[in-house]
Design a protein around this nucleic acid. Structure first.
Lengths: 228, 228
DNA sequence: TTTAGTATTTGAACATGTTCAAGCACGCGG
DNA sequence: CCGCGTGCTTGAACATGTTCAAATACTAAA
């Protein structure tokens, strides 16, 4: 879709979105008012609401943009990488790379996460699409590796949750370039992949297997599958 | 502190708080306006703000109330329980018991959790006191058990995090009496305590130890200690 | 080109969280 | 009893998210 095919509406929507993000990045989410955004984009207040039902909706539109960029980047960087560890590394690190300038207002994404009724809850029904898309990337990451069938079912949801936790840590990380987050992430990924491999080795499998099965069953009973 | 010693202010504050909670429980947090609360409590709008700097502050005052009740209940129910599993069970289940009627507006507690700047973030500096109090209960729970020194350092923070996750699951749990949450919780606690015990057994310690050490080190480097 | 219909845009009006200057009341020293 | 200060209370005013009826711009059929 190039500029010529964009209707006036699409251009206005894009203008409002990018203007809003610029202000959010510069001044933070709270401080920036809808009137500020409209004024900076040189449209009426109502125009912003014509394209975005709420201020939070802008943040979710931003997250859509992030998700598309992420999927594209990941598929590009995956070329040549076939190991599980490397593929997961690409997924996680590239995500943080995309988000790196937006830590200041990223918190707005989680604002209604604990309210099941709210349409913008990260865990709610209103965001099922976004979640599914995000988990699909994790499913792709582990697709062609030698991971058991059960794990293939549960890992996408589990990894998605880890990824959420990492973003949360990322938001709070004040070390330069968020080095602490990247270091922690590498540690977590090393551990995760090694644990998966270890659980397949003949030596410890007898000990680990029962635990693993119990974890899997618990998660399944809790409804913690990829179809979450 | 009985009624006689309460100043007029303390009584008004209490009246506003309890009125607000009644409305939150009945109509939800969003729907209930500050004007509603003030009208129901038969005071002026400003009176509510005299005692609570914001609508969210009421939720945090509620959480203070919860915490006091929880500490009291736990210390009562602990009498006679000395096993780690039982003590943790008391802590977690009694917490859910206290929260059981408030699932509807409990989400408001987490609203600003992802924004480090916000004074009411569950992870932020503004709520350090509450967090410390909450972790103290977990520290008490494991205090007299045979757990390694390192684990004693990290478990309170880890358990506090698990407890947050359980509350989140609890909020979303629509099964009758939130049975799913309680079942999941028992599974998690069984697993947790057994894993701790297992890691002390001579048989598997050589295999588990390096993993365990890495996890502990990672958490420590991430700043994930009880002093969080 | 004209016209009917749709998409877009406007800005005033509304609802609600929050602030604040002013008023009230109660206790205490004189 | 008076005056005075502190703590408490008031409600109008303000800021901002949101709604909406009306105005305008655009598109496509006739």
């Amino acid at each position: 879709m190039n500029l010529a095919t964009k209707s006036a509406g699409e251009k206005t929507r894009e203008l409002i979105l990018q203007t809003a993000l610029r202000l959010f990045r510069g001044c933070g989410f709270e401080i920036t008012t809808m009137r500020d955004i409209a004024r900076a984009a040189e449209v009426a207040t109502g125009a912003a609401y014509y394209y975005f039902p709420s201020k939070e909706a802008i943040v979710f539109a931003y997250y859509d943009q992030v998700q598309r960029a992420h999927a594209e980047t990941v598929r590009e960087e995956w070329k040549g990488e076939s190991g599980l560890r490397e593929r997961l590394g690409v997924v996680f690190h590239s995500k943080l790379e995309i988000l790196k300038d937006d830590r200041r207002f990223l918190g707005a994404l989680f604002r209604y996460s604990a309210d099941p009724q709210h349409p913008l809850s990260v865990f709610g029904k209103g965001t099922q699409m976004q979640r599914a898309q995000s988990m699909a990337i994790f499913r792709e990451a582990i697709a062609k590796t030698s991971i058991s069938e059960e794990a293939q079912q549960l890992l996408p949801a589990a990894l998605w949750l880890v990824h959420l936790g990492m973003i949360l840590y990322f938001i709070y990380d004040e070390s330069s370039d968020q080095r602490k987050t990247h270091k922690l992430l590498d540690g977590v990924l090393d551990l995760l992949t090694q644990a998966i491999e270890l659980s397949d080795s003949a030596l410890v499998r007898p000990f680990v297997q029962p635990f693993q099965n119990r974890v899997l069953q618990m998660l399944q009973e809790a409804g913690w599958t990829a179809e979450l």
